[in-house]
Design a protein around this nucleic acid. Structure first.
Length: 342
DNA sequence: CATACGTGGGA
DNA sequence: TTCCCAAGTAT
């Protein structure tokens, strides 16, 4: 694509964005002089990693209400932060979120660094998030490449290499379109185009402001891009969750190790999760009764969790069940709801 | 480069 | 039902 075409394409997309920009709590409106607080940009970007806007939005509202600044967030107890994140998934994000807030508070005087390189050095901030914060919060000409941008670029240039192998090439192609004019708006425009028009299925080419430059559309099969390598089938595992209750509506819970699946989160005591039915001992001797099973799907395996319930005393972390229901990972919330329905 | 890491919604 | 995801990062 020659420079004059790039300039025309950029102008067309930015003009479209001026009219069609989505209004979101963390969004800097097109052409705004006052940019969104870097703290809010960073928080939204972390929450939106592999997560839909409708899922993340209520979390964003709760977090910014409880913790209006990064310094406020840095002062939170680990367990409180993990509880507030419960249900949003990918819990390493929550652990890194806190580590990042503390790094900004302690090492940067409570002020987010304003360069891509310095942002990249922060915990939980990778190539995408560093570029996004640099562009959106600081209006720097960063090459912001997320899944949406990859799709737009793969179609625009009809890239025949499948992802993930094509990632470096897609990033290089995206960089051709970056310029010093309105970098923050450019990043958001490209992502909005990807999510709203250049959709994975049924792209709306007739509404696309840059379709005249799109090689993918010219092939007649824009939806074919980006090509993908086939994924391995998801294995299935089985396990047991034990719900030990006392007479006052409390439930025995445990804190999971900081690393690994659901790391750092509160959960029910369980057996190991294995391919074959587990033959595990309950955490305490009691009159255990079957309460059925719940199914849950993680990214890399699916799980059938058999639920067993008993009344008794346990040497666990006891938490009022009302709090537990609101602050457990979904797999445990399902199991607990199943047990309490007995 | 491959793998681990959640969740809920839509086709 | 089953599959595919959605604004990725760390190791």
């Amino acid at each position: 694509m020659i420079p004059s075409e790039v300039a025309d394409l950029r102008a067309a997309l930015l003009a479209w964005y001026d009219v069609h920009a989505r209004t979101l709590p963390w969004r800097t409106p097109p052409g705004a002089e006052v940019r969104t607080d870097p703290y809010r940009v960073w928080l939204s970007e972390v929450m939106l990693q592999q997560t839909t806007v409708p899922h993340a939005a209520p979390y964003f509202e709760r977090f910014t209400t409880r913790w209006p600044t990064v310094t406020d967030l840095a002062a939170v107890e680990d367990a409180d932060l993990m509880a507030a994140w419960a249900g949003l998934g990918y819990y390493a994000r929550a652990r890194n979120l806190l580590a990042c807030a503390r790094a900004v508070a302690n090492d940067h005087g409570g002020v987010f660094p304003d360069t891509e390189a310095a942002l990249l050095a922060l915990p939980g901030v990778g190539a995408y998030t560093a570029a996004a914060v640099a562009a959106i919060a600081f209006d720097r000409a960063a090459n912001v490449v997320d899944g949406n941008v990859e799709r737009v670029v793969a179609r625009l240039f009809a890239v025949e290499t499948p992802v993930p192998a094509a990632r470096p090439e897609l990033k290089r192609l995206a960089a051709i379109l970056v310029a010093d004019d309105r970098p923050g708006d450019w990043a958001q425009a490209l992502m909005d185009l990807g999510s709203g028009v250049c959709r994975p299925k049924s792209p709306l080419c007739l509404m696309c402001p840059i379709s005249q430059w799109c090689a993918g559309r010219a092939t007649g099969e824009p939806e074919r891009y980006p090509l993908k390598t086939k994924k391995a089938a998801r294995p299935h595992r089985q396990g047991i969750a034990w719900v030990l209750r006392d007479g006052r509506g409390r439930v025995a819970l445990v804190r999971r190790p900081d690393k690994g699946l659901l790391g750092g989160m509160t959960g029910l005591p369980t057996s190991d999760w294995t391919e074959t039915p587990p033959d595990a001992q309950p955490p305490v001797a009691a009159d255990w009764a079957e309460a059925g099973a719940v199914d849950h799907v993680f990214t890399h395996f699916s799980l059938t969790l058999t639920v067993r319930v008993a009344t008794g005393q346990g040497d666990f972390l006891w938490t009022p069940e009302a709090v537990a229901l609101a602050s457990l990972p979904t797999v445990f919330r399902k199991a607990l709801e199943r047990a309490l329905a007995m």
